[in-house]
């Protein structure tokens, strides 16, 4: 390799990074698809520079605070949908047996565990297509109980909503509603066939229309291309969510995606940075799969654009201990607190 060959890409990389910095920090405008594509194409050697820019953008737009959340699967397994990554679908062999809606006492105990970590948010998650009347009433009745018991903001993830259901959840005090796009519209038919990407998008719009904060996440590593990811970023920009939980595929036994390998740590870091650069003011949350994907790179994600964490365990898999995450934040001198969207 000649000196010219090694110098030229570095110069190009610098100019792409500089252009993104000007757009995001000086002009405070969102990056467009072509600009994101150019950053996504940087060599691996440029990932540290990319993450450094993402960290600067995060501090500029969001400040140093990190938001902590705990999640609980209040209704596990037996889901009629066929999301190919999910161990809770009833359509695949070897997936999780269905369990009934947890008792109120179990939910409150989990909320107390979450509050003890210093979290400000607690999310109840259900493996369902969408809530029936009984489920909706249960959720609405739990919200004030959790708030009174713990002081936490209460979030809900209960699948596809009707307009009426979204309104009732908002009126019931649900602070934030989670409904992930998961992946780009053009890739979605390879991931789920029992509902459409458009149905998900419509629920996200309903959440915003009724005044709840929208939490709308992604799952990387399902076989999507760079172009799919750039497409997804544009779609997330158009939804303008308060929070984007960033999941990395943890291939689950018995699911169609069980044969996929987790993302390489460096690729995960690259995309954490790109999510921050595409969505500069969003609460970008570390979510499922980070332990197996990033391994010893966990702290590097915190300086690549992440400003929120799910602590403790996930819905059906385990996370590292909250103490490890809290120590990491302390070492990074990142304060813990509640965040809200600033775009």
């Amino acid at each position: 390799m000649t000196a010219a060959a090694t110098t030229r890409p570095t110069g190009e990389a610098r100019s792409r990074l500089r252009a993104a910095e000007v757009a995001l920090i000086d002009e405070r405008r969102l990056l467009e698809a072509d600009e994101l594509r150019a950053l996504a194409a940087l060599d691996d050697e440029q990932v540290p520079a990319l993450t450094a820019l993402a960290h600067a953008v995060r501090l500029e737009w969001c400040g140093p605070t990190v938001e902590i959340e705990g999640i609980l699967s209040v209704k596990t397994g037996g889901c009629p949908e066929d999301c190919h990554f999910c161990s809770q679908s009833a359509r695949f062999s070897e997936t999780l047996p269905a369990a009934p809606f947890l008792d109120v006492d179990e939910v409150l105990a989990a909320a107390r565990e979450t509050a003890d970590t210093g979290a400000s948010e607690f999310c109840m998650v259900l493996a369902i297509r969408g809530p029936d009347e009984r489920t909706l009433q249960r959720l609405i009745s739990l919200v004030p109980l959790i708030e009174a018991e713990t002081g936490l903001n209460v979030a809900v993830s209960a699948g596809i909503l009707t307009d009426d259901q979204a309104g009732r959840l908002a009126d019931g005090g649900v602070h934030r509603y989670n409904h992930n796009l998961e992946t780009a519209r053009s890739f979605f038919p390879q991931i789920a066939t029992t509902h459409t990407w458009d149905e998900r998008y419509e629920t996200c719009l309903l959440v915003r229309r009724h005044g709840m904060e929208l939490c709308c996440g992604a799952l990387l590593g399902m076989g999507e291309t760079v172009e799919h990811r750039v497409e997804l970023l544009g779609q997330l920009q158009s939804l303008d969510p308060t929070e984007v939980p960033l999941n990395f595929l943890n291939p689950r036994p018995g699911t169609p995606l069980q044969i996929r390998r987790p993302l390489r740590p460096l690729e995960a870091l690259r995309w954490i940075a790109l999510f921050r650069l595409a969505l500069p003011g969003v609460i970008l949350r570390y979510a499922g799969g980070r332990e197996i994907t990033l391994r010893e790179f966990q702290a590097m994600g915190m300086t690549a654009g992440i400003n929120a964490l799910i602590v403790g365990n996930y819905l059906t898999t385990l996370g590292r201990s909250p103490d490890e995450d809290l120590r990491m934040l302390d070492d990074l001198q990142m304060p813990i607190g509640a965040l809200s969207g600033v775009i």
Binding site: A99, E106, E113, T114, L315, T317
Partner: peptide
């Protein structure tokens, strides 16, 4: 037999 598993924030 496959177990019914309840995972909560700090245990299972």
């Amino acid at each position: 037999r496959r177990l019914r598993v309840t995972v909560h924030p700090t245990g299972w």
